Simulated scan of single mutants.
Amino acid sequence: MSVKAKKHLGQHFLKDENIAQKIANTLSFKGYNHVLEIGPGMGVLTKYLLEKDVTTHVIEIDTESVEYLKANYLNLASRIIEQDFLKYDLTQVFNDEPFAITGNFPYNISSQIVFKLLEMRGQIPEFSGMFQKEVAQRICSKEGSKVYGILSVLTQAFYDATYLFTVPPSVFNPPPKVDSGVLLLKRKENFTLPCDETLFFKVVKTSFQQRRKTLRNSLKTFNLSDNLKANVIFDKRPEQLSVLEFIELTSLIEND
């Protein structure tokens, strides 16, 4: 028995054992006792996680995959969460305990997975996994890059992001049309920002909605004082600002 990949779920099953093992080895397994795998499919990565000295949980929305996992990974059965990761309240499983996340993420929800990670950053010290290559690169990119954007800034405000390796389409069934990339996010020791964090998210998102414009133009809706708008930082476009500069910018707006 095997599971048929479903297009509407963005499923591309990894079939390369070496890569599965490499992904399992991206995490340090230190500072937490639980790992959550998103979208395990037929368990190619899961089996390597189960060898680790942590408790592995999986969350899977596809009923067929869940049945397969229950039949083939008996020791996992009680830790299969048959839910939509984006909608499910993970505190029902982990309470307030820390846990890591990994997976071969469905392409169609990969950015939303990162946004949920950021919402739960207080509980997730480590995160790794496979994305479309361009998404993985965007998350890890620095200011000045064409792909630097909202995901890059928000993620790197709280996590150190490392692009680890590229994975070709041929190791998946069905093969996707593009390369994939594996990354690692390790939460910063001090992941509390020295500014209003809600405002920070708003400033970053608003800035990049008009990424070709200067911040003076893109942040008009904030009704900033003329005095503040005279600051040279507002001459810049959002992709020119580092994460630290976005934090400084938020503080300036907060104190305007």
Score class of each variant (00 low, 15 high):
H8C: 10
H8I: 08
I19V: 14
K22A: 13
A24P: 04
N25K: 13
F29N: 08
E37R: 12
E37K: 10
P40Q: 07
P40N: 05
M42I: 09
G43D: 01
V44C: 14
L45D: 03
T46R: 14
L50E: 03
D53M: 11
T56C: 05
H57E: 02
E64P: 03
E64R: 10
S65C: 08
V66R: 00
V66C: 07
A71C: 05
A71W: 03
N72V: 00
E82K: 04
Q83G: 01
F85D: 10
K87Q: 15
D89I: 01
L90Y: 06
Q92I: 07
D96E: 15
F99S: 15
A100P: 09
G103Q: 09
F105Q: 07
N108A: 09
I109G: 12
I113A: 13
I113S: 15
K116R: 15
L117A: 08
R121C: 06
G122I: 05
G129W: 13
Q132C: 13
K133Y: 11
V135F: 06
R138N: 10
C140E: 14
E143P: 00
E143D: 06
K146N: 05
V147F: 08
Y148I: 01
G149M: 03
S152M: 04
Y159W: 09
T162G: 08
Y163C: 11
Y163I: 07
Y163H: 11
L164F: 04
F165A: 12
V167N: 13
P168Y: 12
P169K: 11
P174N: 02
P174I: 04
P174M: 05
P174V: 03
P176F: 07
K177Y: 03
V178A: 14
S180K: 13
L183Q: 10
L183P: 06
L184N: 08
N190K: 11
P194L: 03
C195E: 01
C195T: 05
T198E: 15
T198Q: 15
L199W: 10
L199C: 10
F200S: 12
F201E: 14
K202W: 05
Q209L: 10
K213D: 03
N217F: 01
T221E: 14
T221P: 02
L224Q: 08
L224H: 07
S225D: 07
N227P: 03
K236Y: 02
K236D: 04
R237A: 00
P238L: 00
S242I: 00
V243W: 01
L244H: 03
L249C: 04
S251C: 06
